Simulated scan of single mutants.
Amino acid sequence: MTDPKFVAFSTQKGGAGKTTLTVLAASYLYYVKGLKVLVVDCDYSQYSIEEMRQRDKDLIECSPQFKKLFSDNLRQTKLAPYPLLTAKPEEAMQKVREIIEDGNDIDIVFFDLPGTVNNRGVVNILNCMDTVIVPVAADKVILESSLAFALKIQEWLTTGRTQVKQMYMLWNLVDAREKTDLYDQYEAVFEEYGLMTLKTKIPDTKKYRREGSKTLNRAVFRSTVMPPDKTLLKGTRLSELTDELLDLLKL
Rank of each mutant, 00 (worst) to 15 (best):
K78T: 04
G212C: 02
Q154H: 10
F70S: 09
L21I: 11
L198P: 10
Q12H: 12
A138E: 14
Y30E: 06
P89W: 05
F190A: 00
M1L: 10
L248N: 08
Q154M: 10
Y82A: 01
E244T: 02
P81L: 02
K68V: 04
R210S: 07
T19N: 01
R75P: 00
T224G: 12
G194Q: 01
L245C: 05
Y208S: 02
A80I: 10
V122Q: 10
L69E: 15
L173Q: 08
P83N: 06
L195R: 06
V220R: 00
P203D: 02
Y183M: 12
L173Y: 13
Q166F: 06
K199F: 08
I49E: 01
N217G: 03
V136C: 14
K18Y: 02
L143T: 07
V39A: 09
M52T: 04
E144V: 08
Q54D: 13
L216C: 01
A188L: 09
D58N: 07
S71N: 13
K152N: 12
Q163L: 14
D229A: 13
K250C: 07
L248E: 06
R237K: 15
S48H: 04
N119T: 10
P81G: 03
S10V: 10
N118P: 05
F149W: 10
D175G: 03
Q154N: 12
L173F: 08
D139E: 11
S63L: 06
P4L: 07
F190M: 04
A176K: 07
L151V: 00
Q94A: 15
V96P: 04
G212Q: 04
A92F: 04
G34I: 03
R222W: 00
S27N: 05
R55K: 09
S223T: 05
P89Y: 09
E155M: 01
T11R: 08
N172Y: 00
V220H: 02
E192N: 09
T158V: 11
E240L: 15
A219K: 09
S27E: 03
T116I: 04
A25W: 03
K5P: 11
L241N: 08
M93N: 10
V123E: 12
S45D: 07
P135M: 02
Y168C: 01
M1Y: 14
L69I: 09
D72G: 02
L170C: 06
E144R: 12
Q185F: 15
K95F: 05
D112R: 05
K13E: 08
Y47Q: 01
T86K: 15
L198M: 14
K88W: 11
I99G: 08
T77N: 02
D102H: 11
D175S: 07
